[in-house]
Design a protein around this nucleic acid. Structure first.
Lengths: 124, 124
DNA sequence: ATTCTACTTGTACAAATGTACAATGAAGGA
DNA sequence: TCCTTCATTGTACATTTGTACAAGTAGAAT
C-alpha cells in the first residue's frame, strides 16, 4: 500500500471508513451492525457510502458469495495523518499545540491514559 | 455569549472563522490578507463564506464606513469543543487517546512543547 | 420449479459546499 | 460634478454530501 493522493472523505464517509478499519473486512451488513445505536442510518445509505469510498480509492472489495466484502486499500495511518493535518490546518492554523492542550484539559482522558501519555512523552 | 446549537461549519468556513478569531474583528479585506499565500481564494469567495458564517450564527458584523467588520458571536472554545468532538467521533469513534498518541509521535511538537505538555499533564 | 431473501446497481434528489461574477451604490479625488 | 474605487448584495452553478428507494438477480428454501 502506497501513498496516493485521494480525494478527501466526507464526514459520513469517514465514519464508515473507520468501521472498516475496525473490522478489517466487512460486508454492508456488518458495517451496519457496527454502527452505534444512536446513529440510525439505512442499509442502502451505508452501501452508497461504501461505494463512494471505493470509487475514491479508499476501499476495495472481494466477492464472497453474492456479497461484497470491503477492505481498506490505503493504510489507516496515512489517512489519519492527512485528516489530522487538514483538521489542524483548518481549525488551528496547523499548530498542534492548542489541540494537544485542549485534549489534555478536556477531562475525557482517564488518569491511566495520562500516565501512558506521560510515558510516551518521556521517551520521545 | 451562550451555547447555541449552530449548524456545523464546512471546512472552508472553518478556515475563515479561525482567521476571524485570530484577528478578533476584521473586514473582508483583512481576512483576505490573513490568508496563507498558498491558499489563493477570491475576495468574493471570502465574502460569501463570511456571509454564510453570519447566517449560520457564528459571526455578527458592524458597519464601519461602507465596510462590514465581522466578529465572532460565539465563543471560540465552544466551537472548538464541538469540532474536536465531531472529529474524534468520526475518525476515532470518540476515543481521544489515539489522537493524542498520534500528535505526540508526530514530531510536529518541539521539545519545549513536550515539556509544556508534561507540565500540563503533571497538574491534571 | 417457485418463492423468498439478501444483495447489488442504478437512480434520485434536496441541501450544502466551493467558488465566483455582475450589478449596484456610496465615498473620495480630480 | 463626474469618474474611479471599494464594498455589498444578488445570483449562479457545478460538485459533493446525506440519504434512500426501486429494480434486478442469484442462491436458498420449500
Amino acid at each position: 500500500m502506497k501513498h496516493h493522493n485521494l480525494p478527501a472523505t466526507s464526514p459520513a464517509e469517514t465514519e464508515i471508513l473507520r468501521l472498516i478499519w475496525q473490522l478489517k473486512r466487512a460486508t454492508v451488513q456488518e458495517v451496519c451492525h457496527q454502527l452505534p445505536a444512536a446513529r440510525k442510518i439505512a442499509y442502502a445509505t451505508v452501501q452508497t457510502l461504501l461505494r463512494r469510498l471505493e470509487k475514491k480509492g479508499y476501499l476495495k472489495h472481494d466477492l464472497e458469495g453474492k456479497a461484497h466484502v470491503f477492505y481498506p486499500s490505503v493504510e489507516q495511518d496515512h489517512v489519519i495523518r492527512r485528516s489530522v493535518g487538514d483538521f489542524l490546518d483548518r481549525l488551528f492554523g496547523g499548530d498542534p499545540r492548542p489541540l494537544m492542550q485542549f485534549l489534555a484539559e478536556d477531562g475525557r482522558l482517564e488518569a491511566k491514559d495520562l500516565d501512558q501519555l506521560r510515558k510516551l512523552i518521556e521517551n520521545t
